[in-house]
Computed example of a mutant assay.
Amino acid sequence: MNELKKILTSIKKEGYKPVYFLMGEEPYFIDVLCDYITANAVPEEEKSFNQMVVYGKDNSINDIMSQARQYPFMGDRMLVVVKEAQDLVKTIEQFSGYFKSVQPSTVLVFCYKYKTLDKRKELYKTLSKSEFAEVFESNKLKDYQIEGWLKSFVADENLDIEPKATAMLVEFLGNDLSKIANEISKLKIVLKNDRLITADLVEENIGISKEYNNFELINAVANKNEAKAFTIAKYFALNTKNNPLVVTVALFYNFFSRLLQYHGIIYKNTGTNPADIAKQLGISPYGLKDYQTAAKVYPMKKVSQNIAVIREIDLKGKGVNGTLTHDDLLKELLIKTFR
């Protein structure tokens, strides 16, 4: 994330500002910035007396401001980190008063997760304009941005990753950036002197089957490979806990909805650049080939019919119009998709 890197670069080159207000829906980027400041703002030998971590639910704004205004003991800087600062939502506006007498020798960090300040109110305006403060808004990544972020994270770790391994991790771990980062860290330990994260490595160490997963199922459907699709479905029926029907149905819906959109894009713009098409679909360029292939075997009318089938299976999976097993529902979904 560019804004995160910009702040880290500023700290390294210009030093710390007295206040960092980290807020937003994505906790991972907040944790990355907070962890960096916690690790580096105060020397290790001073942390026991010049570093303090407090929690929003246990402290008032006045308590936090009083702590921040203290002078460091036997050192140049004090660090005060406010975890779960979102619990101060009802009184957080009172923090504006701190800027009447900012303590320059204190670095005060607010981790205000899952929320953002009201940008119409005084505190946000004060923080945004003050030379003593840095405001960081951590936004959730879009689904189509996850693969790009993962590749960038892997590169920052001085590693490489196969496209299939990337797709497996994203499909299995979703948009939980903390989990993805943790799994990459584990794989880095396993790799030792090697640099390439392969599908085999992901399968062996994270427990994701490289042959029997939703990524491969969608690929089989896109290529109209019925034998492969039904083999994966059989595996899913024997491992329903790790392969819930609701997830598979949702992925089918996403795939055919995007395929319908792909047909529309191609119909209107026959010369559209593949990278632009991928961006419009909200997928990575690597994933575009499945849509290019599927468009040849599923005309627009069939795609619309399949979307209706997916909705029907979704209702049946929720107990509407009778109760069928996971195996029966997935088989019905595949049969009606292919026919």
Rank of each mutant, 00 (worst) to 15 (best):
M1V: 14
S10V: 05
K12C: 06
E14K: 11
G15D: 06
V19A: 08
E25F: 04
E26C: 04
L33P: 00
S48H: 15
F49W: 14
N50Y: 12
Y55I: 12
Y55R: 12
G56C: 01
K57T: 13
I61H: 00
D63A: 09
Q70R: 15
Y71K: 13
P72S: 04
L88M: 11
I92N: 02
E93K: 02
S101Q: 14
K113W: 12
K119W: 12
R120K: 15
K125Y: 09
L127D: 02
S130M: 14
F132S: 06
A133N: 06
V135G: 13
K140Y: 05
K140A: 07
D143W: 01
Y144H: 09
S152C: 12
F153S: 02
V154P: 00
V154G: 03
I161W: 01
E162G: 07
K164H: 10
A167V: 08
M168T: 01
M168V: 01
L169W: 04
V170C: 02
V170N: 04
G174R: 03
N175P: 05
E183C: 00
I184V: 11
L191F: 03
N193V: 13
D194W: 08
T198Q: 03
E203I: 00
I208F: 01
I208N: 01
K210S: 08
N214W: 08
N214Q: 12
N214M: 09
F215Q: 07
K224M: 04
T231W: 08
A237W: 04
A237L: 10
T240C: 13
V247G: 01
Y253I: 05
F255A: 06
S257D: 00
L259D: 00
L259I: 04
L260C: 05
L260I: 03
N269C: 03
G271F: 13
A275S: 13
A275R: 15
K279T: 07
L281P: 00
G282P: 03
S284F: 02
G287D: 11
L288M: 11
K289S: 10
Q292I: 08
K301D: 14
K302P: 00
S304C: 10
S304Y: 11
R311G: 12
E312A: 14
V320H: 06
D328M: 13
K331W: 08
T337F: 05
